[in-house]
């Protein structure tokens, strides 16, 4: 039966080939699954960045965002300066404090005169 060993050898070879294919396929699949960006980077590399329209949009968006950020920071700085100036204005004494002080001064003079007049009355 010379065909049996041959057929067994062919069968074994086929089995090994199948197993090899199976294992090889699994390994390559797992390698692709482990690197999520790899497929995309490969795609990008194939397509070329400069020719990608989405990349152009992103750069434009980033520029716009940067411009808006500088505009907003300038306006915020202006508002902060105005708040500081307002705080300085509020710290300055107003008309209420002026009249309060004058009132205290005349009030104390009045008390002094009252005490003096009582002393005079006591003497007389």
């Amino acid at each position: 039966m010379p065909s049996r060993p041959v057929s067994r050898m062919v069968l074994c070879w086929l089995l090994i080939l199948a197993a090899g294919l199976l294992v090889g396929g699994k390994v390559s699949h797992s390698a692709h699954a482990g690197e999520p960006g790899a497929e995309q980077s490969a795609l990008a590399g194939d397509a070329g960045i400069s020719s990608d329209p989405t990349a152009c949009d992103c750069r434009h968006l980033a520029d716009t965002l940067q411009q808006q950020r500088s505009l907003i920071s300038r306006e915020t700085g202006q508002i902060k300066r105005e708040i500081a100036a307002l705080r300085d204005d509020l710290a300055k004494p107003g008309i209420q404090e002026v009249f309060a002080g004058i009132g205290y001064i005349f009030g104390l003079a009045g008390i002094g005169l009252y005490v003096h007049s009582r002393k005079d009355r006591g003497r007389s």
Partner: peptide, 15 residues
């Protein structure tokens, strides 16, 4: 004591 009003006026001016 008679000078109290004068002192009050001048103090107000100084204030």
């Amino acid at each position: 004591p008679e000078d109290f009003p004068k002192i009050a006026v001048v103090t107000s001016a100084f204030f």
